[in-house]
Simulated assay, not measured.
Amino acid sequence: MKLFLQSERRILGFILALVPHLADAEDLVQETCMIMWNKFDQFEKGTDFVAWGISIARYRVLNYRRSTGTRRVYFSENLMRQIDDAAVGLSVQGDERLSALQSCLGRLREKDRELIRLRYFAENSTKQTAREVGRSADSVYKSLNRIHDALLLCMRHAVKMESFPTKSLRAEG
């Protein structure tokens, strides 16, 4: 179930690139997820789950195109394969970036991680976050900016070097 939930948005993004109507795209995502669920025993553990889902989605989109082919002009099958390949590549890049972000977050000081948690994971505004930590909104805003800069630098380094820095991050200021 975790794999399905993590992949659903990426599969929807792939389908939306190929299907003009959101309602149709959402229906195709549901069809794709049903097929993935029914064929889960055919998924090879250790391979890219999103890529597998996108390949199933591609066939659902092809069927959709065949059934609605008289209404609109759509992408050629060759172009769809190229989009499919690009989507899988973006999926891998997204996974690398997510991994880098998680590693970089883990290297922040505890109080900086707490600000990030309160602001983004708890979905608080900067003012709400400031109230919770007993600081001014301006102070929290400046701290968040420094933390963002530190995370961005760490992630660029991690993705570029394909390894993560070993020292902890400190948002100076």
Rank of each mutant, 00 (worst) to 15 (best):
V133Q: 04
T68E: 13
D112H: 05
L22C: 03
I83Q: 05
T68S: 10
A57C: 05
A122M: 09
K111T: 12
I147P: 04
T129Y: 03
L3R: 08
M34S: 09
D41Y: 06
F4E: 07
S91P: 01
L152D: 14
L152H: 09
A87R: 01
R109F: 07
D48E: 08
L108D: 06
C154V: 01
A122C: 09
D84F: 08
A87K: 00
M80Q: 09
H21F: 13
D138G: 11
S91R: 00
Q30S: 10
G69L: 04
E172D: 09
D138T: 07
R135Y: 11
G89H: 03
R119F: 09
E77D: 12
M34C: 07
M34K: 02
A150L: 03
L153Q: 10
R113A: 12
D95R: 04
S99D: 13
T68M: 09
H148C: 03
N63G: 10
V133M: 05
R58Q: 11
D138K: 01
T70D: 14
W52S: 08
E8W: 00
A137V: 02
R156V: 09
E8V: 01
E123M: 10
I11A: 08
R97A: 15
I147F: 01
L151S: 02
F14H: 06
A57S: 09
S99I: 03
C33K: 08
V88P: 01
M1P: 10
R156Q: 14
H157E: 12
G46Y: 04
A86V: 06
G53Y: 02
S103E: 15
S55D: 08
R170I: 07
F75E: 15
S7Q: 04
A87C: 13
L16K: 14
E114P: 00
I15W: 00
R58I: 01
L22Y: 11
E77F: 10
N63H: 08
S163L: 13
N63P: 00
K127Q: 15
E77I: 06
D138Y: 00
I147A: 10
L18S: 07
D27G: 01
P165I: 05
N63L: 09
R66E: 15
T70A: 11
R9Q: 15
T47S: 15
L98G: 13
E132C: 03
R81F: 13
D84S: 11
